[in-house]
Amino acid sequence: MLNFIIQRLLSGIGVLFFISIITFVVLMWIPGNPALLSLGTDATPEKVEALKESMGLHVPWYEQYINWLIGFLSGDWGTSYVFGEEILILITQRLPVTLSLAALSLTIAIPFAVMFGVISALYQNKWIDYMARSLMQLGDAVPQFWLALLFLVFFAAGYGWFPVAGFTPMEEGFWVSVHSILLPSIVLAIGQVGPLIRIIRSSMLSSLEQDYMLMTRVNGLSRTRAIGKYALRGAIIAPLTIVGMQLAGILGGAVLVESIFALPGIGRLLLMAVEQRDLILLQGVVFFITSAVVIVNIITDILYRLVNPMIRFGGNHE
């Protein structure tokens, strides 16, 4: 187990290293002149030189990379060109919004997905299964930004059930805050439900076919108990691992949803960085998001092994 954790951490660090190189190369090296990009068309040569100097671009690229990495690791993520503020501060300011959005959307998505996944497996090829599967297909095909737009029109602007824009922080009351991000969270949750149902359904189906289910019949257990205690336990553990993957989807969706609902989160920040060509800010946000995805995946991987005795004790087998 310890071996696995170390191995997983090492490969995670490897992936992070590559991500840092990819973001660095793409943003700082390929276009040749990020200073020029940042300043746009009205840049005078003096301005460019000055900005280059301040961005640390006057040294060779590998030195730039090492400087950037050292700075990054020591908490100096650079200063945003557009906001004129430290990037780390900009991110931490906006983090609560995106985190609440992610947490609330998972809180909505997971119970629904478990319910529909399990029911649709129990009634395989019955109408309710077909319905769940159709919803799944539809959920995968409906663009989140369109859904967000429609929800905004009908539920926020039309019926006035929800605020049209903006985020109310936790300090002003838990439920007020939840209410302010409920609609965007539902949109994000709808995007998550499809893949979650799919994996829970298939893992439940395979659990139902296991021999321990035959044993529950030999022992004369009621179907409720057989499903509740045996089938569910076999089915619920595998989907754990993809919750980490889901985070990537949520963060990707957050860019669009935050933009539509005017929520001041990381996604909005990212979009601004792209629109304003603030490459240093973009680099910071991108690396922050991808690292979060990688780290959460490592954690879920390790958790999965901790709760799964088949792997935890696998070494003692025969």
């Binding site: 490897g14 590559f18 943003l27 390929i30 990537a248 963060l251 860019v255 991808t290």
Partner: peptide
């Protein structure tokens, strides 16, 4: 393979946005 893992860690639209910002 690490490089592929790294690319995979970019949530859907993020990588595309990053490239568009540059290109």
């Amino acid at each position: 393979m690490r490089m592929i893992d790294g690319l995979m860690a970019f949530p859907g639209i993020l990588l595309a946005m990053m490239l568009v910002a540059v290109l």
